[in-house]
Design a protein around this nucleic acid. Sequence first.
DNA 1: CATCTCTGAATGAACGTTTATTCAGTCGTT
DNA 2: AACGACTGAATAAACGTTCATTCAGAGATG
Lengths: 216, 216
Amino acid sequence: MTEVLVQPLRKRRAEPPEVRREQLITATITCIARNGMSATTMAEVTKEAGLSQGIVNLHFESKEKLLIATLRTIADEYNSGQQKILTSSVHTAVADKIQALLDFDFSPRVTRKDKLAVWFAFWGEAKSRPTYQHICSASDIATDAAIRSLFQQAIDEGGYRGISAELLAQGYTALIDGLWLDLLIAPRRFTRKRAKQIATLYLANALPQHIEPPGD
Amino acid sequence: MTEVLVQPLRKRRAEPPEVRREQLITATITCIARNGMSATTMAEVTKEAGLSQGIVNLHFESKEKLLIATLRTIADEYNSGQQKILTSSVHTAVADKIQALLDFDFSPRVTRKDKLAVWFAFWGEAKSRPTYQHICSASDIATDAAIRSLFQQAIDEGGYRGISAELLAQGYTALIDGLWLDLLIAPRRFTRKRAKQIATLYLANALPQHIEPPGD
DNA sequence: CATCTCTGAATGAACGTTTATTCAGTCGTT
DNA sequence: AACGACTGAATAAACGTTCATTCAGAGATG
């Protein structure tokens, strides 16, 4: 019988390591978002994943390595999404790319509460954990460099005076981080739409020919 | 003899509770900055303070309450420093107050690495700890409200069109938070001077008659 | 001034709980 | 039957908290 049965499984079943790793990373994100970093235990994560206690050590060797893999996953996900926009040939016009960048940075996918919570949980620990710091910092560098070159194109096109693409890009990145923080801390006062308006205003002030000031 | 002897003490000595609390909060800040929140233990904190294990429970009842007191101390310190500037009658001109605000937000006192590390450590945990969230959020609300009214004055004075004081203030607050994050995560690439230039540029674009664009 | 008594701040060993990690055994798959 | 992914009870280390004990200093006494 060569037929392959794909059935709803109630019992444990061997899966490729890649699937298990992804499963555990997803569970880790959920736990960090729900309980915070310092209350995220192996027991919680494995229970969330519906697997047994020992499985993290089987697939990741240690808790520390699971956390690093989780951070790397989130960082890669964001960076690749951003790179996709910046290197895309669909949005050929510079203004379109900038708009697409704004849309991306405030898309539901990126601003999901659990993802934001994980970002800030790691940032909070980064000072004392060189590995976290390297991953976060590397992510920021990549982001900065790509955005800087895009803004430089806009500055050249628009003939804007007295504006440095580097300052503008670093400011944009910082503003995004700060707005994400507000979305996480004060979701009542602060909406995605409002955050996007603020970021749009920032760019409209600097690059008036490329970005229009936000409406209501 | 009414003379009070202040001598270098090698042995334990009773101190007013207030002094002990301050001592323990200072030690907590040091530990969080050095080891991160999830590696900050009672043993570490009391050792850093040069006191015995049980003393935190004597003065704060629990670890949780020590952490909350620490967060509250940092938040109050920032808010009172800011309020002092905004309500001061020394800088009567609006432009001067805005400049003083910028100076304050990037003063060595406020941007000290250990203080920033503590801010972000708590922000990282805030999502899952309502008490932290309330303190952080209350701090942000106070900040926002005060800055908004200052910016409104500037907008009225300058007759700036199409700019909302609320958006500008929320943007400023978010930008500051984001710049602090960069100062913490990437101190190599990012200096206080650079961060201040970026914030100055943000305000100069919005309130050109009040704030001049940054030089080099 | 010297001495005794009392107070409570401070100590640190001990306790029970929680934690990450291990590994002998289980069971689905081939 | 053999393999190996997976399990979960067991383990030792680490943690926050407790509390009997200690001792510096204040006030009382002579």
